[in-house]
Structure formats: structure tokens, C-alpha cells
Design a binder for these strands. Structure first.
Length: 527
RNA sequence: GGCGGAGUAGCUCAGUGGUAGAGCAGGGGACUCAUAAGCCCUUGGUCGGUGGUUCAAAUCCGCCCUCCGCUACCA
């Protein structure tokens, strides 16, 4: 629950696994639902924790749907198979000698549980936490299980050094490496008092905490966040119930996470996996945040929060996806504003791309009686074919590097090239000459429009992971089949479709031009 | 405090030794297929400050200023 999807995170994730090369993919999103905080808030609402998280999950899933984000599984840490996975991971760590009973102590807020030392304030009346100033904090000592992270220091450092691509971008990797080098402490993985959590599967005596009737001994406590939330990745890959699936999906190719949880995913998590005899993920990508004007973190209390519902209402799902991923640098924090998004939408989607498609379909339909013209494919015959090869190469390279904003930029350079091509060739002049009986002009008109139609086909398909709802509408206007579902699955390997002239020889008729991205009036768009 | 990053046109940023760049925004023009879109041209910056190295510095070095990230159990 605390790691709910944010637009850039979820939208970015939703297209990274798209089957560009035809590989099978599995895409997870989900929620971390166990914590004292959640139990407390549910109690405030007078409902059970489960009812509380069920409601929130509904909102998250609705937000994903609105943005056309379609994971293969939305995993919840309250899912029964996840509970089994978390408990199995604890058992493995225990069997491996990596967990032991210790003592955890700190400031304890009766409402929220243990508080970080940096979150509490000293006052004349004693130490308080800012959320509940009227409630004095207690210094509490609790017997907990600890994970022996300290035992993995050398291996972690070696993993970072031997696999420079495993934690990215580089500056985040350096931060984490610095964290490791300052010395790793063990961390607690159970909580004694909490009841809203996964039952800790091992008792103080080292034996199972499960009773004969299948229930769990409450004295054993619950699993604390690290051995609960992080486990979701392997649960979603089939651990431990489906070894066949797990062998296929693990290690994960990519975790995309926010910078606030980098340490847990790049230091704790690999060590926990190794302790269980499993492999670390191949790559963890740490993205930044969308910041409001002035570089402030968005929050509802500050009133600078951008609501996904308003966002999609104004830009449409594809527009919202595009402006977010184009405007935000995926490797760092970025200041965003409603105005900047509107400018980006109008400039890139309405004016450049949408209008390119519109003028192309309009001219081809009018001048050639609706028959779809074929592109020139002889080497060197079409400048656009040459430009496309370069654009596609840059696009793919930047996608691989998770630089989504740069990837889009390379695609849009080609949009610009296509628009300049229109002005250079002036199809309307060629059409006039052709009508007057100039056969050479007629041939050239057909070639030029064929190239432009092909450029639109390629752009629509290449951008489909970003614009999954636009792509089928665009291809339909060009009279092309579109084989992909909203989640990118179903068709042939996308990369094979992206070569110039890949659909040469297939007949088709152009449909009526229909604007893909209506221009937004800056004044009328609500911010 | 320690480690790291950043400060370049109104905005977002690229640019690691050789006469300052892109996109957007602003201004002008020619055209007209198109979503008053596209295309061409253009205004605009003593490249945070300062001292130094060099024939030459946004680019290298010193110092200073400002901002940001990491510096473990809220996640």
C-alpha cells in the first residue's frame, strides 16, 4: 500500500516489458498491505484492515486501468500464495543460519509503532512524534528476529563491482556501493506486537510456529516489512508453489523502483535471495520523482498534487502516458507542471505527430483514390527509409538503457524528418501536375505518399508501447491490420514489423482521416 | 560533518580545451496537404562568483556561493 503506483513508475514499467523482440514477458504491479500504520488507519475508519486495503487496492487498479496499464498480475501481499512465499523465505534464511533472535529498541508510538529517530521531536513534555503530538512516545525494547546482512557485505560489494549494470543509473549505484562500504548492520525481520501481518513461521525455540490445526502461534509475532513486501517479486514468478514457472521467470530481468526504496531492493533483497539459495535480479532500475513547481515533492497536503483522474480526463490515457514519459527524465527527478504537459502534448502529439498522420492520410486518400501507396524500398531511393533506420537504432538503444524520454526523442526526430519531407516534396504540387497529365509527377506523388504512409505505420507501431490505444486507430487509418492487444501481446515480434517496407505488397485502403490527438486549448484545460 | 551531483538563452536541458547549442515559448516570412498545424528565418546567454594553468576554458586546477542526492530498520 505504501508502494502504490505513481504515473511515471507504473507507466514506465508497463511498457518496458513490451515484447519488442517477441520474448515472453511477465509484468507485475501490486501493493504492500501489511503495516501497523494501515491497521491503525483502518481502526480509525472503524473497519477491518482487510476491508481497508481492499478499498485502496480498488483505487490503484482503477488508476492503472485509466492509464492502460495492464500487468499480468496485480500482486497483493495479503494474497495466500504470497504469505506462503514469505514464510518459506524466512524458513530458508533460518535453515541457512542467517537469522537469529535479538533485541530491537527505539521510540514507540502507540498509534504507529516504532518511529525512526529522525521522525521524533524532543519537547518539554518528553519525546513526541509529529503525527500525534498529544501522545508521549515510549522507549520500547522488543525481542525480534534479525537477518544477518552483515554476513553478505563482501558478496554484495563484489556483486556491485562485477555487475555494473545490475543497479542503475550509475549515480544511484555509486550511492548504494557507498552505503555497503560504510559497513552493513543486521536488520530486524519480525515484530512481536503486531497482528496485521504474515505470521512468523518459526518460534523462539527454533521449531515451527504452526500448530497442529494449521493456525499460527501469535507469540511468534509477524514478519516485518522486508521479508514480506520484497518477497512479492518471487511470489509473482511462481515461488514456491510452481517451480516450473519460477525456473522460467526468475531471476527477473528488471525491477523498476522509486529512489526511496533503492537500498532495500539493491542491498537487502539480493542478500535475502542468496540466503535462500536464489539469484539476485538481473537489473534494478531506480527512477526519480515527479516534482511540483519549485522542486517540491508532490503531496495532497501541499495542494500541488496531480490527480491521475484529472490527468487522464484532460490528456486521455495515451496523452497522459506520453507527456509523462517524454517530459520526465526517467533516471532522475524532474520538475513538472500542468502547463509544460499541455505544451508538450500540443507540440509533439497534436502538431507534429497527429498532424503528420492527418495530412498524410488526407493527401493519400484524396490524390490516390484511397488506394494505399507502397513505399520505395530500393536502397537509397527514399530519404525517409534512411532516416528511419537511424531513428529506430537510437530508439531501441535508449529503450534498452531505460532512458524512455530519450527514446521518445529519437522517435520524434523522425517525425520532424517526415514533416520536412512533406514540405520538400510538396505532394499538392505533384498532384496538380499529375492531374494536368504529367506522368512523371504522378509516379513521384505515389512514391512520396507511399514513403509517408510507411513512416506513419512505423511510427505508430514503434510508439505503440507508449500509445497503445492510438496505435490501432492509426494503423486502421492506413488500412493496416493491427494484431496487438492493449498490453502489447498477441502479435508478431514488434521489431520485425519495424523494418522499412515490412508490409510491402499487402494491399489496403486508406480510411477517412481522423485527428488522433485533438489540440488542447491551454485556457480551457483545468490544472 | 563525510561522499557524490548540479548551477549554460524566458522554460527544460545538451555540450569535458579552439570563435556558445537543441527543443519549447516569443518575433518575422513564404506556402497551403493538414488539428490556424507543418516548413524557413529570427530575437535572446559576460556558460553561479572569483583566482589560476594555457596561445586558447562552459570545458582543467584552487577558493567561495546556492541547490540537490546518499549517509539503515516510516516505507
Amino acid at each position: 500500500m505504501t508502494a502504490g503506483p505513481t504515473p511515471s513508475w507504473a507507466v514506465g514499467c508497463s511498457l518496458l516489458p513490451s515484447p519488442f523482440k517477441g520474448d515472453e514477458t511477465r509484468f507485475l504491479t501490486g501493493t504492500d498491505e501489511h503495516s501497523v500504520n494501515i491497521a491503525q488507519r483502518a481502526a480509525e475508519d472503524g473497519i477491518s484492515p482487510k476491508a481497508f486495503v481492499d478499498e485502496k487496492v480498488g483505487l490503484f487498479i482503477a488508476a492503472e486501468d485509466a492509464l492502460s496499464i495492464s500487468p499480468d498480475r496485480f500482486i497483493r501481499t495479503t494474497d495466500p500464495d504470497h504469505v506462503r512465499a514469505a514464510q518459506e523465505m524466512v524458513r530458508r534464511a533460518h535453515a541457512n543460519g542467517d537469522i537469529y533472535l535479538g533485541t530491537y529498541e527505539g521510540w514507540y508510538c502507540p498509534n504507529e509503532g516504532f518511529r525512526n529517530a529522525t521522525d521524533v521531536t524532543e519537547t518539554a513534555r518528553g519525546t513526541i512524534c509529529p503525527n500525534h503530538p498529544e501522545v508521549p512516545l515510549q522507549w520500547l525494547t522488543e525481542k525480534n528476529w534479525f537477518f544477518r546482512l552483515s554476513a553478505y557485505q563482501e558478496r554484495l560489494e563484489r556483486w556491485f563491482l562485477d555487475n555494473p549494470g545490475a543497479v542503475q543509473p550509475d549515480y544511484r549505484r555509486n550511492e548504494m556501493l557507498g552505503f555497503i562500504r560504510q559497513g552493513l548492520e543486521d536488520f530486524s525481520i519480525s515484530r512481536a506486537g503486531a497482528t496485521w501481518g504474515i505470521p512468523f513461521p518459526i518460534g523462539e525455540d527454533g521449531q515451527t510456529a504452526q500448530r497442529e490445526d494449521g493456525s499460527w502461534d501469535a507469540e511468534a509475532g509477524t514478519i516485518y516489512v522486508w521479508y514480506d513486501a520484497l518477497i512479492n517479486y518471487i511470489t509473482g514468478a511462481g515461488f514456491p508453489d510452481d517451480p516450473e514457472a519460477f525456473a522460467r521467470w526468475w531471476p527477473a530481468d528488471l525491477h523498476v523502483i522509486g529512489k526511496d526504496i533503492a537500498r532495500f531492493h539493491t542491498v537487502f533483497w539480493p542478500a535475502m535471495l542468496w540466503s535462500a539459495g536464489l539469484e539476485a535480479p538481473s537489473k534494478v532500475w531506480i527512477h526519480g520523482w515527479l516534482l511540483a513547481a519549485g522542486g517540491e515533492r508532490m503531496s495532497k497536503s501541499r495542494g500541488n498534487f496531480m490527480d491521475p483522474v484529472d490527468f487522464v480526463a484532460a490528456f486521455g490515457a495515451d496523452g497522459a502516458r506520453y507527456v509523462t514519459l517524454r517530459e520526465v527524465a526517467f533516471d532522475r527527478d524532474t520538475e513538472v507542471s500542468w502547463d509544460a504537459f499541455v505544451r508538450r502534448y500540443n507540440a509533439d502529439l497534436a502538431n507534429d505527430f497527429g498532424n503528420l498522420v492527418n495530412r498524410t492520410v488526407s493527401m493519400a486518400g484524396r490524390y490516390l483514390d484511397g488506394e494505399r501507396p507502397a513505399p520505395r524500398t530500393e536502397p537509397g531511393s527514399s530519404p525517409l527509409a534512411h532516416d528511419w533506420a537511424a531513428a529506430l537504432a537510437a530508439y531501441c538503444e535508449r529503450l534498452e538503457a531505460c532512458l524512455l524520454h530519450d527514446a521518445l526523442a529519437s522517435l520524434w526526430e523522425f517525425v520532424g524528418a517526415a514533416n520536412r519531407f512533406v514540405d520538400a516534396e510538396q505532394p499538392w504540387s505533384l498532384a496538380k501536375a499529375a492531374k494536368a497529365g504529367d506522368l512523371e509527377a504522378a509516379d513521384r506523388l505515389r512514391d512520396v505518399l507511399g514513403d509517408l504512409v510507411e513512416a506513419c505505420r512505423l511510427l505508430g507501431l514503434a510508439a505503440a508501447p507508449f500509445l497503445p490505444n492510438t496505435a490501432p486507430r492509426l494503423l486502421a487509418q492506413l488500412g493496416h491490420e493491427y494484431a496487438y492487444a492493449a498490453d502489447g501481446k498477441g502479435g508478431p515480434a514488434l521489431l520485425d514489423e519495424l523494418s522499412w517496407g515490412a508490409r510491402l505488397g499487402e494491399a489496403g485502403r486508406l480510411a477517412a482521416p481522423e485527428p488522433l490527438f485533438p489540440r488542447l486549448d491551454v485556457e480551457s484545460v483545468e490544472g
